[in-house]
C-alpha cells in the first residue's frame, strides 16, 4: 500500500558555495544527503518514503553546473543544472546532436522539463531514462567531483542496477560531456508510451548511424534501449549484424530481430515482457529505417 506524505517530509535545504564544500558535506552525511538539481525524481520518492533524506544539497550554483556549450574541437558539455528544455532548444544541440534534442523533448511535460536535467536523468539510473541511451551512443563521459577531486566516468561503465551507479558518497556530477559527433551522423529516438506523448516509456529505442570506412557495410549503426533491461542497454549483437553486409531492408529486419533477441524485459504495470520484446523489434526497425533513409540520401 502506497500512502505518501502530503508534502515533503522534514529535511534541510543546503546550498554549498563550492564543489569542495558540496563533496565534503555529501561525504560527511553519506546516506542522508543527496545532490539536488531539478528534484523531479527525488521529490516523488521522498513523498513516497522510498527515499529518506535529511539534506537536499543544491548543486545548481556550483561551478560548471550551468554550462551548456559546444566546441567544434571538443564537443558538447551539458552542466548538471542545465534543464531538458535548455538542451532541446539549444541551437548547437539542434545542429550537431538533434537526436539528443529529440530524446530530451520526449520527456514528460514542458513544465517538468524546465526542472528536469539530463545529468539528473543519468544519475537516477532509471531503466526508463529517455536521454540516457542517446548519451551513451554519443560516447558520453561524466565529469565527477568527489572528495579526491575531479575524475571522468564514461557512461558505458556508469550503471550497475536500476537506480544504482558507480557514484560514491561525496560525488557530485558536474556535467556530461559528449565528444564531437562522427561526421554525417544521423540519429533518432523512438519512444512508445501509453499516451501519445508525455508518458514514461514502455520501450525506448535510440539509434544512430554514420558513414565509416571501417565496416564492410560502409556505415556504423548503434542501438540503445530503454525500459527493457535493468540498465540502459546497447545491443552490440544487432550493431554487428549491420556492420558486415550491404544495408538492405532485409538486413534491417534481421537487426531488429537481433535487437529483440538481445533483451529479456520484465512484466510491469506499464507493459508485458511479450509486448516489450515485440516493440523493441518494431521500433528498432522503424528507427533504423528512418536513419538509413536519411543516410543514404
Amino acid at each position: 500500500m502506497i500512502n505518501p506524505h502530503p508534502g515533503l517530509p522534514e529535511l534541510q535545504y543546503v546550498k554549498p558555495a563550492t564543489l569542495q564544500e558540496a563533496s565534503k558535506f555529501l561525504a560527511d552525511n553519506a546516506g542522508v544527503a543527496k545532490p539536488y538539481s531539478g528534484g523531479t525524481d527525488s521529490f516523488v520518492r521522498l513523498r513516497d518514503g522510498v527515499l529518506k533524506l535529511d539534506y537536499l544539497v543544491d548543486i545548481k550554483g556550483l561551478e560548471g553546473t550551468k554550462e551548456l556549450s559546444f566546441d567544434p574541437q571538443k564537443g558538447l558539455t551539458i552542466g548538471a543544472a542545465v534543464t531538458m528544455n535548455q538542451v532541446a532548444s539549444h541551437p548547437d544541440v539542434l545542429k550537431h546532436y538533434p537526436n539528443l534534442a529529440e530524446a530530451a523533448a520526449s520527456v514528460a511535460s514542458y513544465q517538468l522539463r524546465n526542472r528536469a536535467t539530463i545529468v539528473g536523468n543519468i544519475c537516477n539510473a532509471s531503466p526508463a531514462g529517455d536521454t540516457i541511451g542517446t548519451c551513451m551512443l554519443l560516447d558520453g563521459v561524466l565529469k565527477v567531483h568527489g572528495v579526491d577531486g575531479v575524475r571522468e566516468v564514461p557512461l558505458n561503465s556508469f550503471f550497475l542496477a536500476p537506480g544504482r551507479t558507480v557514484l560514491k558518497p561525496g560525488d557530485v556530477v558536474i556535467a556530461v560531456h559528449l565528444p564531437v559527433p562522427p561526421k554525417g551522423l544521423v540519429g533518432t529516438y523512438k519512444k512508445l508510451g501509453r499516451n501519445r506523448i508525455g508518458d514514461l516509456s514502455i520501450v525506448g529505442v535510440a539509434v544512430l548511424g554514420y558513414p565509416t570506412n571501417e565496416s564492410a557495410s560502409g556505415y556504423r549503426f548503434r542501438i540503445a534501449l530503454a525500459s527493457v533491461a535493468p540498465v540502459p542497454f546497447e545491443s552490440f549483437k544487432a550493431e554487428g549484424v549491420l556492420s558486415g553486409k550491404k544495408i538492405t531492408s532485409e538486413l534491417i529486419d534481421e537487426a531488429a530481430v537481433a535487437t529483440m533477441d538481445s533483451v529479456t524485459p520484465i512484466d510491469d504495470v506499464r507493459g508485458s515482457a511479450r509486448y516489450r520484446k515485440q516493440m523493441v523489434k518494431n521500433l528498432t526497425r522503424e528507427a533504423l529505417t528512418e536513419v538509413w533513409t536519411k543516410l543514404s540520401k
Binding site: 528534484g39 513544465q111 517538468l112 526542472r115
Partner: peptide, 21 residues
C-alpha cells in the same frame, strides 16, 4: 504534489514550472 497534473504551474523567471516540484 508529484509534478504530473500541472494544476500548480507558475512562471518562474519567465518559464513554467510545477511549483510542487
Amino acid at each position: 504534489a508529484a509534478g504530473e497534473c500541472g494544476a500548480c504551474t507558475v512562471l518562474m523567471n519567465g518559464e513554467p514550472v510545477n511549483s510542487c516540484m
